[in-house]
Amino acid sequence: MGIRRHWGIENRLHWVKDVVFREDDCPLKLAHAPEHWGLIRTWALNLFRLHGEVSITKAQRRVAHDIDALFLLIQ
């Protein structure tokens, strides 16, 4: 059971942050910047999921070009 929980977390959080948000490619490596940006990415991921988005990639593209959709997401 513990292994399933581990892979559930890996697939729903870490993989998305690594692949969709390209967290490993982030050029910010000094001080607390990686930690802060990691929190921002997790916050964004949770907002997308809270609003029922199935594809994080499609949701990210949608709000990237529509400021009204972005504001609706954070209200």
Rank of each mutant, 00 (worst) to 15 (best):
M1D: 10
M1E: 10
M1Y: 11
M1P: 14
G2N: 11
G2I: 12
I3R: 01
I3N: 02
I3E: 05
R4H: 09
R5M: 10
W7Q: 06
W7V: 09
G8M: 05
I9V: 09
E10S: 09
E10N: 06
E10H: 11
N11P: 04
N11K: 14
N11D: 15
N11M: 13
R12G: 01
R12Q: 05
L13N: 06
L13I: 14
L13G: 01
L13P: 00
V16I: 15
K17P: 01
K17R: 15
D18P: 08
V19N: 10
V20F: 01
V20H: 05
F21L: 10
F21Q: 06
R22F: 00
E23C: 12
E23K: 15
D24S: 15
D24E: 14
D25T: 15
D25L: 13
D25Q: 15
L28F: 06
K29L: 12
K29G: 09
K29E: 14
K29R: 12
L30P: 01
L30S: 12
A31F: 01
A31S: 11
H32F: 12
H32L: 15
A33D: 11
P34S: 03
P34L: 04
P34H: 03
E35A: 13
E35N: 10
E35M: 12
H36V: 14
H36F: 04
W37C: 05
W37N: 05
W37D: 03
G38Y: 02
G38P: 04
L39G: 14
L39W: 03
L39R: 15
L39Q: 15
I40Q: 06
I40V: 14
I40Y: 04
I40H: 03
R41M: 01
R41G: 00
R41D: 03
R41I: 00
T42H: 05
T42K: 10
T42P: 00
W43P: 00
A44Q: 07
A44H: 03
A44N: 04
A44M: 12
A44E: 02
L45Q: 06
L45R: 08
N46K: 06
N46I: 08
N46P: 00
F48C: 08
R49N: 02
R49C: 01
H51S: 07
H51I: 00
H51A: 07
G52C: 07
G52Q: 05
G52D: 02
E53Q: 14
S55I: 10
S55K: 10
S55P: 03
I56G: 01
I56V: 13
I56S: 00
I56N: 00
T57L: 07
T57C: 01
T57V: 05
K58V: 04
K58L: 05
K58M: 04
Q60R: 15
R61G: 02
R61L: 03
R61Y: 00
R61V: 03
R61P: 00
R61T: 07
R62Q: 09
V63K: 05
V63L: 03
V63Q: 07
A64R: 15
A64S: 13
H65S: 09
D66G: 05
D66S: 09
D66R: 11
D66H: 11
I67M: 06
D68L: 06
D68H: 11
D68C: 04
D68A: 11
D68S: 11
A69G: 10
A69I: 13
A69K: 15
A69P: 14
L70G: 00
L70S: 04
L72W: 08
L73H: 04
L73F: 04
I74D: 07
I74G: 05
I74E: 08
Q75M: 04
Q75K: 12
Q75H: 09
